[in-house]
Design a protein around this nucleic acid. Sequence first.
DNA 1: CCTATTTAAATGCAAATGCATGTAATTGGA
DNA 2: TCCAATTACATGCATTTGCATTTAAATAGG
Lengths: 154, 154
Amino acid sequence: MYFFTMTMPDETTEAAWTKLMRAQDRALSHVEAALKDAGFPPLAWYDVLLEVERAGKSGIRAIDLQQKLLLPQYGISRLLSKIEAAGYISRQLSAEDGRSQEIVITATGRQLRRRMWAVYGPAIEQAVGCKLTPSERKTLTGLLEKLTSPPADT
Amino acid sequence: MYFFTMTMPDETTEAAWTKLMRAQDRALSHVEAALKDAGFPPLAWYDVLLEVERAGKSGIRAIDLQQKLLLPQYGISRLLSKIEAAGYISRQLSAEDGRSQEIVITATGRQLRRRMWAVYGPAIEQAVGCKLTPSERKTLTGLLEKLTSPPADT
DNA sequence: CCTATTTAAATGCAAATGCATGTAATTGGA
DNA sequence: TCCAATTACATGCATTTGCATTTAAATAGG
């Protein structure tokens, strides 16, 4: 038999929670704004292009993208439609699985990704890199990593 | 005369950026899901109710809420409409400034905030508190605080 | 081999969001 | 005092998102 206490957070937890929300919002806003100012599509496009580019010639299935990018199924579906319509990727039916599709990056897609990185990279540097020392960045990464660890059950 | 280098992020910066995005997404999703599962409105409602409650009898102006919560002007405007329609706050015209309104929490609003906290608190504890030691939480908070510091110009 | 279940992806519809603009009150010159 | 600029807030419209459902293909069980 178990007693389980629905423990309330202490001040250090509340503070960490709040700062996490604020810091992420700030950093993300900065990056999204930089992309938009430069006339580029949203960050999500970059993430897709990067993964699809990494997948190489054989491409990647939508469902695998979905898992990598942690987006809902309909989110990926519609995102791919837009990126395809813009000519940066192509979707071709999978030979093995008729339900599936292989997504491949196009030449202009590769180009767009590269040009976006020229804005995205410095924006990350401004939002995160230059605010912390290398050792602080490692510490931060380690602590955030712990937060991402599998949720304690129930 | 200045030379300015658009520096690219190193691996530690990229890692910190990525983890920040992931960890925040995880934590926020967990909390939002907990609230939704319990039949409560989104987190933003809580934030509003808390600030309005803190403001006490005299209330708080929409624009002050806007600054505290870092939401766009139209976001606050519509959010307040919904929360008011649900009966948790009341908006009354300001005596001093005819453009402005004083927002005050209602009894049921106070009650809702308290009931939400019973879910929100433990959810934060699960998402953040129990994953880190108190000293780690303090370190994390400090590092995130640095990220929120004013942006380096241009 | 045939049907029930599961899986991959698309989509209709309603709600939420972003952007630009509108309205009304206040402030700040000249 | 009068009018232009600013400030506080609301809202129309287009886009995006979330949810539930649909379609079509693959798999599993008998």
